[in-house]
């Protein structure tokens, strides 16, 4: 039950092979058509639902 935006953000996070996860900056670069606000809104939802988590700091994310 993801929206299109949530799905895009989640799939990018899921596909990142880095141990520290994907950086906020990379999400913004890959999703140029979304605003920073849109991306942060998606991240909040995904974290709240337990689909993703922050890693080494609040700007890196991995999927569960």
């Amino acid at each position: 039950g993801f929206t299109a935006n949530q799905s895009q953000v989640f799939n990018l996070i899921k596909s990142c092979p880095l141990a520290e996860g994907i950086a906020m900056q990379s999400l913004m670069t890959s999703l140029k058509y979304l605003t920073t606000y849109d991306i942060r809104t998606c991240l909040k939802f995904l974290i709240n639902e337990g689909h993703i988590f922050s890693t080494v700091d609040d700007d890196h994310f991995k999927s569960t």
């Binding site: 520290e20 337990g50 080494v56 991995k62 569960t64």
Partner: peptide, 29 residues
Amino acid sequence: SNLTPEQQKKIEENRQRALARRAERLAQG
């Protein structure tokens, strides 16, 4: 991996918390 043991520990703890949260959300329906 270029992560320190402390960073690896933090990531694993955050992962476990997220998994618990996911289970909680699924249980709520």
